[in-house]
């Protein structure tokens, strides 16, 4: 059996701090009730539920967070934010993870790689979000 090794070194601490800084949320306010995941209209499309993603951030498991599709599936409908009993702006956390990835990897989304038919169907907001470069 392989175990996930839990450590809180400099790298983990910096990752958590950055997410908290971008989102303006205390990640440890979350007590894992799961109400965000319960109400999320896109939960079934996510590989990790919203609360699982938050739990990984709490544990400093950066790789697990970055590999997930959760924050990309998030439509920023704010249902989670409205319903969170701990007043966490969960949507802002999802945005923070996207932001974190784009800052690390500004060229993550290349417009040339997006097929034309897909490009035409995409809402503008998705494109704006994907090309946010060197901001913040």
């Amino acid at each position: 059996m392989s175990y996930e090794y839990i450590k809180f070194g400099q790298e983990e601490k910096e990752f958590i701090k950055k997410i908290e800084e971008i989102s303006g949320q205390n990640i440890y306010s979350c007590y894992q009730c799961g109400k965000c995941s319960a109400g999320c209209p896109f939960s079934s499309k996510m590989d990790l539920t919203v609360n699982q993603l938050i739990n990984h951030i709490q544990m400093g498991q950066k790789e697990k967070v970055l590999q997930a599709n959760t924050h990309w599936i998030c439509a920023s409908c704010l249902t989670c934010t409205i319903r969170c009993p701990r007043e966490i702006d969960v949507a802002a956390l999802m945005e923070a993870v996207r932001e974190y990835i784009l800052r690390e990897e500004p060229e993550k989304v290349k417009i040339a790689d997006i097929p034309k038919d897909v490009l035409e169907k995409l809402p503008n907001i998705a494109l704006v979000g994907s090309f946010r470069k060197m901001t913040g």
Binding site: I6, K7, Q32, N51, Q52, M59
Partner: peptide
């Protein structure tokens, strides 16, 4: 310490 995180379904150790 060998345990589990049942919220993320991972076996964990530290």
């Amino acid at each position: 310490v060998r345990g589990v995180n049942t919220l993320t379904a991972e076996s964990v150790e530290l």
